[in-house]
Structure formats: structure tokens, C-alpha cells
Design a protein around this nucleic acid. Structure first.
Lengths: 110, 110
DNA sequence: TCTAATACCTAAGCAAATTAGGTATGTAGT
DNA sequence: ACTACATACCTAATTTGCTTAGGTATTAGA
């Protein structure tokens, strides 16, 4: 099971899309969830994830709620209305990219 | 017709894949061809392309042949054997990324 | 007691785009 | 002749956004 490349710029889309679907999530949970959904193929590193969450919060696309579970702090992130709109844009960009890539790398479709 | 995002890391894959399929191409031609194939949705900027071509040549994945057409210099790039192998790897990575993204952004597939 | 899992975080470094220039020739319109 | 645009190459500063490699602290299990 080899580790796969995360193309730069795609992490925000992954995070926002997950939060839009699954409601509240905390950082560590996102790393586990991505790994689970992709059968261990894609790993979101914490060094990339936490700065991304902070950036999305600073942009007003996510909001935070602190929780204490088992004496451990958890920061639950929620998507905002502004975040939902931006998610739709990012998903469209991602889908366009994918369809463009598919015609570019598949000579039969070109 | 909006311009689409080029996720960082994907340009080498696009260039190598095109050259593998279409034989020799020169830089300016690649920018036109990508735009044409994607119906104007994806634009490869020259500021990204030329350094990428030079890098791929330095790695031995491409080779170059100069030509003079209409008193203008053209640098035709060809894919090497080493380049073909690397292209196969990059295409696999891209396909894995796409299938991972699709399950991540499409809740019905998860 | 040691390790692994949970849960947060930052900082240095690096890769790869974007943006914004530059040179030079050929062609078409006014 | 002047202008504008297409062709065809190029570089450099900047920005973005990862990877790598640390760090802290708590809980659970061998």
C-alpha cells in the first residue's frame, strides 16, 4: 500500500468538503478519516493540516468550538455559510481539473 | 470560459504525458495544445512551462533538438526511455490521486 | 516502565506555481 | 511607417503550500 502524492492546493478542498458532509470534525479525526476513506492510500500530515485549518478559520470559512474529552482538548471545526459557498467553488475547480487532466492524459478522449 | 487552477505538481505529468503521446513538441506549442485540448479551460503559463522543460531535460527525461523555422528558433523536446518510465509512474500517481479525490468529495462513493 | 495512540502545535526547508517582466521575428491592418 | 498581435524563447522575485521534523501533554495497554 504505497503512499500517494497530495497535489498542492488540494488540501483545503478535502478539508472543506469533509466538513460540509460530516458536520463537525476535529483535526486528528480528519487525518484518520481521510486515511480510512482512501483505504490508507492518502495521508494528510498534521504539519499540513493544522496550518490549513487555521487559515480557513482566519478566512471565515470555518468556525471552532473547544471541547474537553477524557481530559484531552479537542477543537471541533464547523463549516460556515461563507465556507459552504467557497466549498462549492473549490469542488467545481477540482472537478474541472480532473476532467481536464483526464483528456490530457488519455489520448483517446482528446 | 473561466481559467482553471493548475494544482502544483501536475505540470510535469501533463508535459511528459503529451510528449509521450504526440512525439516531439516545442514549448510554445505545448501551451497552445493544452489550451486546445481543454477547450481553453486550462492555460499553461510560460513562466511555469520553460523552467519545467529545463528541469525535465536536466533529469534526463527529455532531450532537445534545435530547429529554425521562419527565421525563428524552436526547441523541440522528445521523451527519453527514462522519461517514458517516469511518465508511467506519474500517470499512476495522478490516477490514484483522482480516484482518492473522487471518494473524498463524493459522499455517495465513500 | 515503555510504547503507542490520541490531540494539539510550530518552524525550517523546499518545490512549484504565479506574476511580471524581458528579447526578437513575422504578419496584418491603418 | 507605425501599431498591434502572434510566434518563440527566456528569467527572476514572490508567494503558496506542502514535507519533514521536531515539540507538548494525556491516556491506555503490555
Amino acid at each position: 500500500m504505497q503512499k500517494n502524492k497530495l497535489y498542492k492546493g488540494s488540501l483545503s478542498t478535502i478539508v472543506l468538503s469533509l466538513l460540509k458532509e460530516q458536520g463537525k470534525m476535529y483535526g486528528y479525526q480528519i487525518t484518520r478519516e481521510v486515511e480510512k476513506i482512501t483505504n490508507g492510500q492518502l495521508k494528510v500530515t498534521e504539519g499540513a493540516l493544522y496550518p490549513t485549518l487555521h487559515k480557513l478559520e482566519a478566512k471565515g470559512l470555518l468556525s471552532v468550538e473547544m471541547a474537553k474529552v477524557n481530559n484531552r482538548v479537542r477543537k471541533y471545526y464547523f463549516i460556515t455559510e461563507k465556507g459552504k459557498k467557497e466549498t462549492a467553488n473549490l469542488l467545481n475547480e477540482m472537478k474541472s481539473f480532473i476532467s481536464n487532466m483526464e483528456v490530457l492524459i488519455n489520448p483517446k478522449l482528446a
